[in-house]
Write a protein that binds this DNA or RNA. Structure first.
Length: 297
DNA sequence: CTGGGTGCTACTGGGTACGG
DNA sequence: CCGTACCCAGTAGCACCCAG
């Protein structure tokens, strides 16, 4: 008789899926990523193609696939020898992990972000409820200012009104002011302070080095943080884009996180950040940025 | 057009494992 | 043992479909 109480141990793939979504590719169709990855691998092994012959999109997808394989020691073998059902199951477990981590992060950032945007030793006016989002976004002077694209002037009443009423809907590639250190954007030097805001650092620490590591030098953590749990030693491009997307959503008034939602446009925003950080022409700046993050976290 | 059925996905509350 | 942070099961809520 099986006396085991409690639930069955969850598949470690779910655990890897959590890290995959947070640091490698947040909005991933794992099923097709894996299918295409396997196909390309076989084609390369047969000498029918090589990595250089893949187009930009295919090569990028293949890179992501290889990073996924790197997360779990036996994964590649399981995929190569597995039945279609097994492959389907594996993809499902990765997807499950990645979306459950995403929703956990969405949930906890939703309330703590209110603390972070409250002025030190001051109050937020009007106040915002920690678990209610309806009056965030462009309905609130603070969240509105943070979300307002850098090419628009939040101080302008007409602009403010148009953003609030939805006449003006910023797209995912118009960058909100909160991405910049101290919210200062310099059109002459667009890299200056980009992706270096305190808000981002707080959110990054919250997710990767534990919630209590955000405000105190002496973390009260009683468990290993996510970064340590997954052997993460340096800042990854995907993780920056992920955190920026989470913060952007937490500031918005949208109640439901959806990849396709036209107002929030999270997936497009995420991809725009990744695209910038992977742009070969920007690599010098990006290297500096990642080094800055490694020092700050 | 509309009411109910269906499938899907994200949110929530709570459980539990882990490190001290 | 305790407090914290990861993780999950269950369900609310949405979009879509289709018969009436």
């Amino acid at each position: 008789m099986n006396l085991q109480v409690g639930r069955a141990k969850t598949d470690p793939l779910v655990h890897h899926g959590r890290h995959f979504g947070r640091t490698i590719q947040a909005f991933c169709r794992v099923q097709s990523l894996v299918q295409n990855g396997l196909t390309v691998t076989i084609q390369i092994e047969l000498g029918r193609t090589s990595e250089d012959q893949l187009n930009i999109g295919e090569r990028r997808e293949y890179e992501i696939y290889k990073q996924l394989l790197g997360l779990s020691p036996m994964l590649e073998e399981r995929l190569c020898t597995g039945s279609p059902q097994e492959i389907y199951y594996i993809s499902e477990m990765i997807t499950k992990g990645s979306s459950s981590a995403r929703s956990d992060d969405t949930k906890s950032l939703k309330s703590v972000i209110v603390d972070w945007i409250t002025p030190p030793n001051g109050i937020l006016s009007p106040p915002l409820q920690r678990h209610v989002k309806t009056d965030r976004g462009f309905y609130h002077p603070t969240t509105g200012g943070l979300l307002c694209p850098v090419n628009l002037d939040w101080g302008n009443t007409k602009i403010r009104e148009e953003l609030r009423s939805g006449v003006l809907v910023p797209s995912g590639d118009q960058w909100p002011r909160f991405l910049y250190q101290s919210c200062e954007y310099n059109p002459e030097d667009p890299w200056n302070g980009l992706l270096q805001s305190g808000l981002l650092v707080s959110a990054y620490k919250h997710v990767f080095t534990s919630p209590s590591s955000v405000d105190s030098r002496e973390p009260r953590a009683t468990r290993s943080c996510n970064a340590r749990l997954h052997g993460m030693t340096s800042t990854m491009i995907g993780s920056l884009a992920y955190i920026a997307t989470q913060v952007r959503f937490a500031l918005s008034s949208s109640p439901v996180f959806s990849r396709t939602d036209l107002v929030t446009d999270s997936e497009y925003f995420y991809n725009s950040v990744v695209e910038l950080l992977e742009d070969p022409e920007e690599q010098a700046e990006v290297r500096q940025l990642l080094a800055w993050w490694d020092r700050s976290v």
